[in-house]
């Protein structure tokens, strides 16, 4: 090695600046780390998909079709009690599928419903949802207006507002629970293949699977760049330089993606791919599926019946 600079003389110099651990990991850095590990450790732990619960035993196609219909039913409900009932049903199904509620509840609620709960808070007040006051907070001299909307004379929490907020949050929570339940109890590759029952073309599910596969490859590429950047960073760069650096990396990944698509194309051709894809599945409808479907049809009709009787 003859380069003047490529030598270590007198051992490693002590670091003049940094205290290790002084810098917090930025929010989006964490996202990258999380998403990467999410993909690496399997799309989900698949721990629950392998358990021997009720939903795990049902054919993925039947499961997607039935729980999908239930999802639509949730969106049709007009009564808090019915939505509450459906939510309890979903929790019951989770228990029957051997899903630990200590895992399931936080996983569901920390996702969207908590966020929706915050969004729903203003709806409690008569400013947004007028109605019978339950609890009056402030009384102004007269009503006044800010830009497009009006602030009424008294600000209070209304009965209607309470209904709106609870209904909204419960509906979101029940929907999210259902989706999480499907996803947790089905292995990802079966889930994709089973989408066929919803008339999703095989080609499209194949592309979705391939996308996940290559997202992971690109994430690894980014991770490498990221590590390289971190180990090379010497001083704080300016915003403009930072922007240039990040966008040139995006451009690089873009070029790599396009090039890779050409190469993958060759690899597919080489194994006989023409214009359309054929994917094998190993699904078999069993007796338990018929029982489940019959029970489900009964249950959903009853719920929908109540929904329309209650008006």
């Amino acid at each position: 090695m003859s380069y003047r600079w490529l030598k270590t003389e007198g051992g490693i110099a002590p670091c003049p600046c940094c205290k290790i651990g002084g810098r917090k990991i930025g929010f989006l850095e964490r996202t990258l780390v999380e998403v990467t590990s999410f993909f690496r450790n399997g799309l989900f732990s698949e721990e629950y998909a392998k358990k021997n619960g009720i939903l795990q035993r049902i054919d993925p196609r039947v499961k997607i079709l039935t729980l999908g219909i239930l999802l639509v039913a949730v969106s049709l409900m007009r009564h808090l009690t019915l939505i509450g009932g459906l939510y309890l049903t979903v929790l019951f199904l989770a228990i029957l599928s051997k899903i630990d509620l200590k895992f399931f509840l936080p996983r569901v609620w920390l996702f969207i419903p908590l966020f929706s709960g915050i969004i729903a808070i203003p709806a409690l007040f008569n400013v947004f949802v007028p109605g019978e006051p339950l609890l009056t907070l402030i009384t102004f001299k007269s009503k006044w207006s800010v830009g497009l909307f009006e602030i009424p004379k008294t600000i209070s929490i209304t009965k209607q507002g309470l209904f709106v907020a609870t209904m909204f949050v419960m509906r979101v929570a029940t929907s999210v629970s259902l989706v999480v339940l499907i996803v947790l109890t089905t292995r990802w590759q079966y889930l994709l293949k089973a989408l066929r029952v919803l008339w999703v073309p095989q080609m499209f599910t194949f592309i979705i699977g391939m996308t996940c596969r290559y997202i992971h490859l690109l994430l690894k590429l980014i991770e490498d760049i990221h590590l390289a950047k971190k180990s090379r960073v010497i001083k704080k760069t300016s915003v403009v330089a930072g922007q240039r650096w990040v966008t040139s990396q995006i451009g690089n990944i873009l070029k790599r993606s396009l090039q890779m698509s050409e190469e993958v194309h060759s690899a597919m051709l080489s194994r006989g791919f023409t214009n359309d894809v054929r994917i094998l599945d190993t699904f078999r409808i069993k007796r338990v599926d018929y029982v489940w479907a019959a029970f489900f049809i009964l249950f959903t009709s009853v719920i929908l019946g109540f929904n329309s009787i209650l008006g």
Binding site: W188, Q189, L192, G209, M210, C212, R213, Y214, V264, A267, M268, R271, G272, F273, T274, V277, R278, I279, L280
Partner: peptide, 15 residues
């Protein structure tokens, strides 16, 4: 490029 090892090996003969 497939989702699983099983699908990958089955891809060629299936096409």
């Amino acid at each position: 490029f497939s989702s699983t090892v099983w699908d990958e090996i089955a891809f060629g003969p299936t096409q």
